[in-house]
């Protein structure tokens, strides 16, 4: 019996281990080794930190790096600001069928691929697009307006893409808040603002943080949206990685960039957890 249980345990664990080792550990270790190589001649390599030094010496790389981090943070904040009232409405105010219908509405855009969704935004925002035409028709502007290829367009796309990943954890945590706790808040003299600040938001904190982590990671690592809505020169860090690997065929520098991105996202997530007093176990459990 005991041997059987052990066999069962091993069999259950195998897919996880295979997945971790083959798809996460090995590629990352390999990529890390690549990033530490310096090409000194044709087919000749030496181990050095040259690629990382290149990253720190070139202001454009650093600037792109910083810009990506700031834009992602802003996108996360905007997503949170929009998603919180939506989630609160779904979790606490809507009842029964209305609740599931609204939740489904949040989900439906994600039935379509990200590429198609982003093209949808391009149709709306481009020079000959819907918004531009509408503005001309209403007489507010007298010539076509180009609304694509700027930071605002990137922001719109990022927020739209990330919405669901913020709404889901928020709805889940808000639903677990007992209605009578909110009522008790009002009963003891609280108003809408103080109940929100002292009761609802502290309760939802793990959901807020886990939603923010996911949205932040998705924004930081997003390639499609910044490229399509912001144009090829929108200076998103993933574009740098892409161009090193594909355009310049400089895998060594691309790998180093990849590790810088991993490092950056880890530091920011860690900082966010420290700042809000949450732990990873609490937000993910």
């Amino acid at each position: 019996m005991k041997a059987e249980a052990k066999l069962g345990f091993v069999l259950l664990l195998t897919p996880l281990l295979l997945w971790l080792v083959l798809l996460i550990f090995i590629p990352h270790i390999d990529m890390f080794l690549v990033s530490l190589r310096e090409r000194v001649g044709v087919g000749k390599y030496e181990t050095s930190l040259a690629n990382y030094l290149t990253f720190f010496r070139e202001p454009l790389y650093l600037w792109t790096f910083l810009r990506t981090a700031v834009m992602s943070t802003v996108a996360t904040a905007i997503t949170l600001l929009i998603a919180f009232p939506v989630s609160y409405y779904i979790a606490k105010i809507a009842k029964g069928r209305m609740q599931s219908a609204l939740f489904l509405l949040c989900l439906i855009p994600f039935y379509v691929s990200e590429l198609v969704r982003t093209f949808g935004w391009m149709i709306l925002l481009r020079e000959t697009g819907l918004v531009s035409n509408l503005l001309q028709w209403s007489g507010l502007v007298d010539q076509p307006v180009e609304m694509l290829y700027n930071d605002a367009a990137i922001m719109v796309g990022l927020v739209y893409t990330s919405m669901l990943f913020m709404v889901v954890p928020l709805v889940t945590t808000l639903e677990s808040l007992d209605d009578s706790v909110i009522e008790a808040g009002y009963d003891l003299g609280g108003n809408a603002f103080s109940v929100m600040r002292e009761i609802v938001i502290p309760h939802a904190a793990p959901g807020i943080v886990s939603g923010c982590i996911v949205v932040f990671m998705l924004s930081l690592g997003n390639y499609l949206t910044p490229t399509m809505l912001g144009g090829k020169d929108s200076l998103w860090f993933t574009q740098l990685i892409y161009s090193q690997f594909i355009v310049r065929f400089n895998w060594e520098l691309g790998a180093a960039f990849g590790f810088m991105l991993l490092f950056l996202s880890s530091v920011i997530v860690w900082g966010m957890l420290r700042l809000t007093g949450q732990t990873l176990e609490k937000t993910m459990g």
Partner: peptide
């Protein structure tokens, strides 16, 4: 409004604030 009434309520499941 409930928050302006001179009554207070002990709820069925008490509804203590778990975050405090």
């Amino acid at each position: 409004a409930p928050n302006k009434r001179p009554v207070n309520m002990v709820f069925q499941h008490l509804a203590l604030f778990p975050m405090m």
